[in-house]
Amino acid sequence: MATLAEETRNRFPKITEAGLDDLRKRIGVAITDTVEPWNYEASRDAIRHYAHGIGDDNPLWCDPAYAEKSRYGSIVALPSFLFSTSRIVSGYCGGLAGVHAMWAGADWTWHKPVLRDDVIRTQAHLKDLVEHQTRFAGRAFQQIYHVDFFNQHGDLVAECDSYVFRTDRDEARERGTKYTEARGRVEPFTQDQLAQFADMYAKEEVRGAATRYWDDVNVGEALPRMIKGPMTVTGFICYAQGWGGLYIRANKIAWNMFAKHPGLGIPNRFNVPDCPERVHWDEAFALEVGAPGAYDYGPERCSWLTHHITNWAGDDGFLRKSKCQVRRHNPDGDVIFIDGSVIRKFEENGRKLVEIQQRGETHRGELSVIGSAIVELPAKS
Rank of each mutant, 00 (worst) to 15 (best):
Met200Cys: 15
Met200Tyr: 14
Tyr201Ser: 03
Tyr201Leu: 07
Ala202Lys: 12
Ala202Thr: 06
Lys203Arg: 08
Lys203Ile: 07
Lys203Cys: 00
Lys203Tyr: 00
Glu204Gly: 10
Glu204His: 12
Glu204Val: 03
Glu204Cys: 06
Glu205Ile: 12
Val206Gly: 05
Arg207Ser: 07
Gly208Met: 06
Gly208Val: 01
Ala209Gln: 11
Ala209Arg: 09
Thr211Glu: 11
Thr211Lys: 05
Thr211Leu: 00
Thr211Cys: 10
Thr211Gly: 05
Thr211Ala: 10
Arg212Asp: 03
Tyr213Asn: 02
Tyr213Lys: 03
Tyr213Glu: 03
Tyr213Leu: 00
Tyr213Val: 01
Trp214Ser: 01
Trp214Asn: 06
Asp215Cys: 10
Asp216Gln: 02
Asp216Tyr: 02
Asn218Gly: 05
Asn218Pro: 01
Asn218Leu: 10
Val219Arg: 09
Gly220Val: 07
Gly220Tyr: 13
Gly220Arg: 09
Gly220Phe: 03
Glu221Cys: 01
Glu221Asp: 02
Ala222Gly: 03
Ala222Lys: 15
Ala222Val: 10
Leu223Asp: 03
Leu223Phe: 05
Leu223Met: 07
Leu223Asn: 08
Leu223Lys: 06
Pro224Leu: 02
Pro224Val: 08
Arg225Glu: 11
Arg225Trp: 07
Met226Ile: 10
Ile227Pro: 08
Ile227Thr: 02
Lys228Gly: 02
Lys228Arg: 14
Gly229Ala: 11
Gly229Arg: 03
Gly229Asp: 08
Pro230Asp: 08
Pro230Met: 04
Pro230Tyr: 05
Met231Thr: 03
Met231Lys: 01
Met231Leu: 05
Thr232Ala: 14
Val233Cys: 02
Val233Ala: 09
Val233His: 06
Thr234Val: 11
Thr234Pro: 00
Thr234Ser: 14
Thr234Trp: 13
Thr234Gly: 02
Gly235His: 12
Phe236Ser: 00
Phe236Glu: 01
Phe236Trp: 04
Phe236Gly: 05
Ile237Met: 13
Ile237Phe: 13
Ile237Glu: 15
Ile237Trp: 13
Ile237His: 00
Cys238Thr: 14
Cys238Glu: 10
Cys238Ala: 09
Cys238Ile: 13
Ala240Pro: 08
Ala240Ile: 11
Gln241Cys: 14
Gly242Cys: 02
Gly242Ser: 14
Trp243Tyr: 15
Trp243Gly: 04
Gly245Lys: 05
Gly245Trp: 07
Leu246Lys: 15
Leu246Asp: 09
Tyr247Phe: 15
Tyr247Cys: 05
Tyr247Trp: 15
Tyr247Ala: 15
Tyr247Thr: 15
Tyr247Asp: 08
Tyr247Glu: 15
Tyr247Val: 12
Ile248His: 08
Ile248Pro: 09
Arg249Cys: 13
Ala250Leu: 13
Ala250Thr: 09
Ala250Cys: 12
Ala250Gln: 12
Ala250Lys: 14
Asn251Val: 08
Asn251Lys: 01
Ile253His: 12
Ile253Leu: 14
Ile253Lys: 11
Ile253Asn: 09
Ala254Asp: 02
Ala254Thr: 04
Trp255Arg: 15
Trp255Val: 02
Asn256Leu: 06
Asn256Trp: 09
Asn256Gly: 04
Met257Cys: 12
Met257His: 14
Phe258Glu: 00
Phe258Gly: 04
Phe258Thr: 01
Phe258Leu: 06
Ala259Asp: 05
Ala259Thr: 08
Ala259Met: 03
Lys260Leu: 06
Lys260Cys: 02
Lys260Asn: 11
Lys260His: 07
Lys260Gln: 06
Lys260Gly: 10
His261Gly: 00
His261Ser: 12
His261Lys: 13
Pro262Asn: 05
